[in-house]
Write a protein that binds this DNA or RNA. Structure first.
Length: 280
DNA sequence: AGCACA
């Protein structure tokens, strides 16, 4: 019936589209092109906000004609990767047929969103071409130019190069705090209606997923303590206990959607467990 | 959509 997807470990095709893969491992920011020129920052935000591990995004009008690009920042490379794979090639606008091109950014966005501030930002270079290097952003840690290290500028994308070369400063924040961002930043928010818990529930694992495999995978995250895998007749599910809610939350965001060698039904799905693992 | 162990 349904075994057209044999065995497709993620590590066999880590980053086919970049030629070399070893230089983008620390990147947690995605570079997004292929956007229609009337795209709104809100749309970009709504596109990525569902992806776990999402932190913030920026929409940039490059001033080059009507080219728009976006940068989406995640908590780590892993979650950025997951978002990349699930959204790359997706038709963004059925009307125009525009298709998203997503790749790892050349360098990470320096911007780190502080809790309570806007989850997205617009940088508009279209009308203001002067060197008024002025930051109008609400969240900022220091105050210099944007994340750019545009060494080569060979964006073998689809004819449009030099998007990266255009990002400097001169940013304008478009208010988002009152709408989507606010809702996204609810202090004690729950996920899937389950309150935060230091134990995570992990589902959508492949039938051959072993406790060892998963344990290795989770060990890279601080605070990971105990793993339990239950087969329950059907597909295995797992419970991973962490030292505290914060570390569980970080791991969940980072590992959400991750593929491991035994995965055969897509990435793993992680939620807070309904109850904390009993201490042994 | 699937949440156990005491």
């Amino acid at each position: 019936m349904a075994h057209q997807q044999p065995y497709d470990p993620y590590y066999l095709h880590q980053a086919p589209e970049y030629g070399f893969n070893n230089d983008r491992n620390g990147i947690n920011t995605l570079f997004v092109s292929g956007l229609p020129d009337d795209v709104k920052a809100r749309e970009i935000h709504n596109l990525f906000r569902r992806r776990s591990g999402f932190d913030s995004c920026q929409l940039k009008y490059t001033g080059r004609g009507s080219q728009v690009v976006a940068f989406a920042t995640f908590v780590n490379h892993q979650s950025a990767m997951a978002a990349l794979h699930s959204l790359n090639g997706v038709k963004f606008d059925p009307q125009t047929g525009s298709v998203l091109h997503i790749e790892m950014a050349r360098s990470n966005s320096r911007r780190k969103r502080k809790p309570g501030s806007g989850a997205y930002v617009v940088i508009d270079k279209r009308t203001k071409t002067t060197a008024d290097a002025q930051e109008t952003s609400s969240d900022d840690d220091s105050g210099a130019s944007e994340s750019d290290e545009p060494s080569g500028a060979n964006q073998s994308d689809s004819g449009d190069k030099s998007e990266l070369a255009v990002m400097k400063s001169g940013e304008t924040v478009v208010g988002a705090e009152s709408t989507v961002a606010a809702e996204n930043e609810q202090t004690e928010k729950t996920v899937d209606g389950v309150s935060p818990c230091s134990t995570l529930f992990i589902a959508n694992l492949g039938p051959n997923c072993t406790e060892d495999e998963l344990k290795q995978f989770l060990s890279q995250y601080t605070g990971f303590k105990v793993l339990k895998v239950r087969a329950r007749g059907g597909m295995p599910v797992a419970f991973a206990d962490f030292e505290d809610v914060e570390q569980a939350t970080i791991a969940m965001g980072a590992l959400q959607g991750s593929l491991i060698p035994s995965s055969d039904r897509g990435g793993m799905h992680i939620e807070y467990a309904r109850s904390k693992m009993r201490k042994s």
